[in-house]
Design a protein around this nucleic acid. Structure first.
Lengths: 242, 242
DNA sequence: TGACATTTAAAAGTCTGACATTTAGAATCT
DNA sequence: AGATTCTAAATGTCAGACTTTTAAATGTCA
């Protein structure tokens, strides 16, 4: 682990990069303890606060975790699926909210990816996944449900569908696509009629999954995508006119 | 922006979270300047180094950028697709390398997602995307190409395929799935025969894309997935036996 | 001997205050 | 008016001290 004393980049950035590289290259392995802050500041010939800023950068990315007390220190963190999932959702959400991505673009990406999960989910889903999907469909039919709660239930339904593929990598990748849409979906007001159409499609998808028919599930998702885009365009058109 | 003085969590973590929440909620908008470090330390009643650690955490996630000098400070950063893309690749790569994800699982996820792009790419790809695919296929046929270079070219081919869908959200989502596989692919040694089979499939896929036949492209990807998994299992079997 | 309480030291977390460096903008000069 | 210099504000860095947490070593007693 070395830094370039001639570089114009901030020291804390350089140090963070050096440690990150060491982790990625395998020089530092999971759960290995990094030198203490005092040792690091000595090694890199910088002050302790500078080292700390570098460590905080890494901690923010879940690359390391710190522990206080004797035999404490900074440890290389095993990036868990949960952590990666959370990061993925945050990044995707911010990306969509900050870049004027059109609803259609986001929607298209989401459903394209989700359709890819359908055949796997139809083949492998557990009874639990199916039960979750049914339960969410039931919830979506309850009167008095707010639009936000309806959207949240929609996300839960789709998560169950994706998780049904029993591929953690796929679930992780889809997390962003599905959840980042929620703020966009929350801008839509769903009439009772809209909800009926959507839950009808959900039922059709769940039935297909239950029957092990991935093609039918994908077709249902296709229709759901059309429906969602139509709904959104109506809402945005009405809003633009006002 | 408030912090809970009774919380046991580290102050810098709390402050980072408070600012992050303000950004996500829209209280702070893109390119808005945060208060100076001195003002923040005054506001939160903590010292400047503590505030700085919080800011470094946010900078590590590309949520803010800092500028030195007069009228400098920390600004809410517009998360660009490039930044998000880079984060996505790093996270995915670490996730796979640290969690003993089987080759099959990663491979399945990657090709399932990629097949989802095929119809869109067949419909929308520009001449440029197609040219890139052809160029990479040509490179893959060159003798004397190292295995690592072959894998890199493979990634470039698939990126062109994905980008052909002309949906930046999709490209971003796929970035992790495709690039994170590279270290795993690099563990495979490709015989001349293997390469011929792969480039043959690549050609078939490119032809289908050129013809606008998304179904055929997806089928080609399906076969490529099978081929890749077979190759990998052979390599791992041979390695286990030794 | 073994279980429990106490001490101790190491390490992260935090604070204070200072100085260095960068940079935009104001002031000045030609 | 335009170029140059000055200035002040802000981040970047440093040094050293103190606080809090935590595990391990030590000591004590049944």
């Amino acid at each position: 682990m070395k830094i370039d004393p001639n570089s114009s980049a901030d020291l804390s950035v350089q140090i963070a990069q050096a440690i990150k590289d060491a982790i990625i290259s395998g020089e530092l392995i999971v759960d290995e303890r990094l030198p203490s802050e005092a040792e690091l500041s000595d090694h890199f010939q910088v002050s302790r606060p500078t080292v700390r800023e570098a460590l905080k950068r890494l901690a923010a990315q879940s690359l390391i975790r710190t522990q206080r007390g004797a035999s404490g220190g900074a440890f290389v963190n095993r990036l868990s699926f949960e952590d990666a999932y959370a990061q993925q959702v945050t990044t995707s959400t911010l990306l969509l909210s900050m870049n004027e991505v059109s609803f259609d673009t986001a929607c298209e990406a989401r459903y394209a990816l989700e359709r890819a999960c359908a055949p796997l989910s139809a083949e492998r889903r557990s009874a639990d996944h199916l039960a979750t999907m049914r339960a969410e469909i039931f919830r979506q039919g309850q009167p008095g449900l707010t639009d936000v709660a309806f959207c949240a239930s929609d996300v839960a339904f789709h998560r169950a569908l994706v998780d049904g593929a029993r591929n953690p990598v796929l679930s992780y990748q889809l997390a962003g696509a599905v959840e980042a849409m929620q703020p966009l979906m929350n801008m839509i007001t769903f009439t009772a009629r809209d909800r009926a159409v959507i839950t009808g499609l959900h039922t059709r998808i769940a039935d297909a999954i239950e029957a092990g028919d991935g093609g039918a599930a994908a077709a249902g998702l296709q229709d759901l995508e059309c429906e969602t885009r139509k709904l959104a365009s109506d809402v945005f058109a009405a809003r633009a006119q006002r």
